Simulated assay, not measured.
Amino acid sequence: MHPKPNLANHSTLSVLPKRIIIMRHGESRGNLDYSAYTTIPDHQIPLTDVGLAQAQDAGSRLRHLISTASYTDSWRVHFYVSPYARAQSTLRELGRSFTKKRIIGVREECRIREQDFGNFQVEERMRAIKRTRQRFGRFFYRFPEGESAADVFDRVSSFLESLWRDIDMNRLHHDPSHDLTLIIVSHGLTSQVFLMKWFKWTVEQFERL
């Protein structure tokens, strides 16, 4: 996110979020068995029982982190979540650790979905494609019928611009007396690209991750 040059004098400085937390979804069926992608669309891949437990534990840890790091008891959270099933399930489980008054909003955001690897994925073909990606370069290699990390970078950049406008125009309806934490529940590659954009990493730095 690129703050405006006059941010120090901006009238909304007092309502900037205290922190942004980026979270990857819990363990999914695809993490355990890649063949799941041959019969289940990527966006419908569910969490495993372990993944559900991880999300519950993450919620407890997040609440402890936010509550102990806030100077007052008046803290709030706002969630942005990928539309993929595994991210939605992660949000539902970790959200159990927060009371309704603590959550000022939840927004499904399609631009922070997983990198598109194509439709139903043939396991052996995908293994060969990923070997080719390693030789070609992870950032610019575009999956057949899918996306490159560079494509993900473009949509994450668009999301960050919208995120800044949400903050700048107080579309989140954030009371400035409350410490606000934004929590983004997304995916591994998307989170890396988010950090690349935020910290202005080069392509070479991304490739070394």
Rank of each mutant, 00 (worst) to 15 (best):
120 F>P: 01
154 D>M: 07
159 F>W: 15
158 S>H: 09
118 G>K: 06
157 S>C: 08
156 V>S: 06
142 R>Q: 13
112 I>D: 09
127 R>N: 10
159 F>L: 07
131 R>M: 14
119 N>E: 14
172 L>T: 06
173 H>D: 14
111 R>A: 15
109 E>V: 02
98 F>S: 13
108 E>P: 07
157 S>M: 05
160 L>H: 09
161 E>M: 11
134 Q>T: 12
102 R>C: 11
163 L>S: 03
161 E>I: 07
108 E>L: 05
164 W>K: 06
156 V>A: 06
128 A>F: 00
164 W>I: 07
139 F>I: 06
161 E>Q: 11
154 D>Y: 05
153 F>L: 09
151 D>N: 12
151 D>K: 00
130 K>A: 04
147 E>H: 02
175 D>M: 10
154 D>T: 06
174 H>P: 05
168 D>F: 04
100 K>W: 05
168 D>M: 10
123 E>M: 11
163 L>M: 14
168 D>S: 13
170 N>F: 11
128 A>H: 08
130 K>D: 14
175 D>F: 11
148 S>T: 01
166 D>T: 04
104 I>D: 02
121 Q>S: 05
129 I>T: 14
124 E>G: 06
136 F>A: 10
117 F>E: 03
140 F>K: 08
148 S>G: 05
130 K>H: 10
146 G>Q: 02
171 R>I: 06
115 Q>C: 13
146 G>T: 01
120 F>M: 13
166 D>V: 03
145 E>S: 09
169 M>L: 13
137 G>L: 07
101 K>C: 07
150 A>K: 08
169 M>Q: 12
168 D>W: 10
111 R>Y: 10
171 R>W: 09
110 C>E: 12
132 T>V: 08
163 L>T: 02
152 V>W: 03
139 F>Q: 08
138 R>M: 02
153 F>S: 09
147 E>R: 07
165 R>H: 05
148 S>W: 01
127 R>S: 12
104 I>H: 07
152 V>M: 07
107 R>H: 01
174 H>N: 09
144 P>A: 10
108 E>D: 06
105 G>N: 05
127 R>H: 08
